[in-house]
Design a binder for these strands. Structure first.
Lengths: 112, 112
DNA sequence: TTGACATGCAACCATTTAGTTGCATAATAG
DNA sequence: CTATTATGCAACTAAATGGTTGCATGTCAA
């Protein structure tokens, strides 16, 4: 379980999150497509994101499918604005439950 | 203007934000107190936080007073959960205006 | 003006980290 | 079983980063 802040510190990893945000369930090779980096480079980044719990995976045969997990992101803000405007931030963390339901499925419903 | 993600990647900087979250308007020397690092080390971190717009400053005589600016934090979440549950996140960004008013004053009102 | 206090700048060093290449392992297709 | 496809592990290199020390600049008090 690596640090979420450190996981987000790299632009390549943020771009990978962008890709998974656009479309969940992509394999390593999918994510390598058009990415200016070797396959192992991407795999390394995905591993870091995984350990930080920002990406969850789902094996399907010999393919490892990746999904964005936005939940821990809310906690970041919570650290420094929590006491500040708690009532409103609580609205933010509300959708934790909804998100957790969408973890493994095909996820395209996100921008249907 | 350095990267906000990179600014948050270091634990020392996060602790400095914690301190400024607890009490705004602290000088460099104030923040050095009890911090396991040289004064210049702290100054370097504060400089990075400043350039990332997470800390704003206010000169008073020969003292530079530091204040936490939590606004950019909301944008982090917005990047990956924005389209997702926009209505609710909007509630989060609502208090931008309120925060911007509190930039220079003594700020203890925060947890009055 | 002198001295003390508060911050700023720059060079330097040790460690971490992003990326590479090469090889190993596991599962599907024929 | 053999090929191919998809991922995993390890060693290595170049660059970025966190922290240090030393000195410079600017402000307040006497």
């Amino acid at each position: 379980m690596t640090d979420i802040f450190q996981a987000l510190a790299d632009e390549s990893r943020r771009l990978l999150l962008d890709r998974l945000f656009e479309k969940g369930g992509q394999s390593l090779n999918d994510l390598c497509e058009g990415f200016p980096m070797s396959r192992q480079g991407v795999a390394k980044h995905l591993g870091i994101l995984e350990k930080a719990n920002l990406v969850s995976v789902h094996w399907q045969g010999r393919s490892k499918l990746h999904y964005l997990n936005p939940v821990p992101l809310a906690d970041i803000v919570h650290r420094w604005v929590g006491k500040f405007e708690d009532a409103r931030i609580d609205a933010l963390t509300d959708f934790k439950d909804q998100i957790e339901d969408k973890q493994k499925p095909e996820q395209e419903k996100r921008h249907a």
